[in-house]
C-alpha cells in the first residue's frame, strides 16, 4: 500500500526550477532512499513534503489524504516526522527534554516520560540524557533528532542525512535501527550520501538530479543505471 506520495512537485526560485514535476512514493514497512548530487533538490523536496515550503504546483498525499494545503503541524498530526540536514535541535534543552517536548505533543503524551526513556535506551543516548543539546557533537546531535522524531510515534519518517558525522560502527547500528523501524510498519524516506548505508538498507531508491527524478528502482538496479552514473560521475 502506498502511504506517502508526492506528485508533480515544482518549486521555482526566481527563474530557477529547484524541483520540476517531481514524483516520489514511500511505502509502509519499506525504507525508501532519495539520493542525488549536492544541489539536486532533495532537502527542498523534504521541505515540500512536510509543509515548510509551498510548491508552485504538485500534490502531497499521506495515506490518500491530500495534505498539500496543510501546515507542518497539521501534517505532523497525520503521522509525519522529519530530521533536518542542518541540525534543528532545541539547543537550550537537555537531550531528554528535547525528546519529552516531542512525546508530549504526540499520541503518547500521557506516558511521555516512559516513552522517552525507552527511546533513549534504544538509541544509546542514556548517558547524555541530561546534557544540553547545544553541547553535543554533530553525530550525537543527529541521533537526538532521530530520537525526537521517533518520540511522536511517526508513521512516515523523513530522515535528512542522519548518518553524517557517524563512524563505520555507528552507521551499521543505525542501519539496523532503520530496518527495525520499517519492520514495525513505519514508512522511512531516507536522504543520505553514504552509499553503503543506502544500498544496504533501502528497498527502493529514487535518484534526483537538477530537480528531476532520473531513476527509480531497487538499489542494485539504480547502481548500474547510466543516467545515475552520469549524474554522479559526469558523462564517461
Amino acid at each position: 500500500m502506498v502511504s506517502l506520495e508526492a506528485s508533480g512537485v515544482t518549486v521555482a526560485f526566481g527563474g530557477n526550477r529547484a524541483l520540476d514535476g517531481v514524483g516520489i512514493t514511500a511505502r509502509q514497512g519499506h525504507v525508501t532512499g532519495l539520493i542525488g548530487p549536492n544541489g539536486a533538490g532533495k532537502s527542498t523536496l523534504f521541505d515540500v513534503i512536510c509543509g515548510l515550503r509551498r510548491p508552485s504546483s504538485g500534490r502531497v498525499l499521506l495515506d490518500g489524504h491530500d495534505v498539500t494545503r496543510l501546515g507542518p503541524a497539521r501534517r505532523a498530526r497525520h503521522g509525519l516526522a522529519r530530521t533536518f540536514q542542518r541540525l534543528e535541535l532545541f539547543g537550550r534543552l537537555s537531550v531528554r527534554d528535547n525528546l519529552l517536548v516531542a512525546a508530549e505533543l504526540g499520541p503518547e503524551r500521557r506516558r511521555a516520560a516512559g516513552a522517552v526513556t525507552e527511546i533513549l535506551t534504544r538509541l544509546g543516548l542514556t548517558e547524555m540524557a541530561d546534557s544540553p543539546a547545544d553541547t553535543l557533537s554533530t553525530g550525537a546531535g543527529r541521533l537526538v533528532e532521530v530520537g525526537r522524531a521517533l518520540a511522536v510515534r511517526p508513521r512516515f519518517l523523513l530522515l535528512d542525512e542522519p548518518a553524517a558525522g557517524q563512524d563505520g560502527a555507528e552507521t551499521e547500528r543505525f542501519a539496523a535501527l532503520l530496518r527495525s523501524l520499517a519492520d514495525e510498519g513505519t514508512a522511512v524516506l531516507l536522504v543520505e550520501h553514504d552509499m553503503t548505508l543506502v544500498m544496504s538498507v533501502c528497498d527502493q531508491v529514487h535518484v534526483l538530479d537538477l530537480g528531476k527524478i532520473i531513476a527509480v528502482g531497487p538499489p542494485a538496479e539504480v547502481r548500474c543505471d547510466d543516467a545515475v552514473l552520469a549524474a554522479y560521475l559526469g558523462d564517461l
Binding site: 503541524a73 516526522a81 522529519r82 534543528e88 535541535l89 534543552l93 528535547n98 517536548v101 511522536v152
Partner: peptide, 24 residues
C-alpha cells in the same frame, strides 16, 4: 513543566517545533 519546555523549544527552532505538531 510541559509549557515551559514547549516555549523554549519554540524559540530554539520554530521549524522543528511545528514539525512535531506544535501549534505556534
Amino acid at each position: 513543566r510541559r509549557f515551559g519546555r514547549q516555549l523554549i523549544a519554540l524559540r530554539d527552532s520554530e521549524a522543528a517545533y511545528a514539525m512535531l505538531g506544535g501549534n505556534l
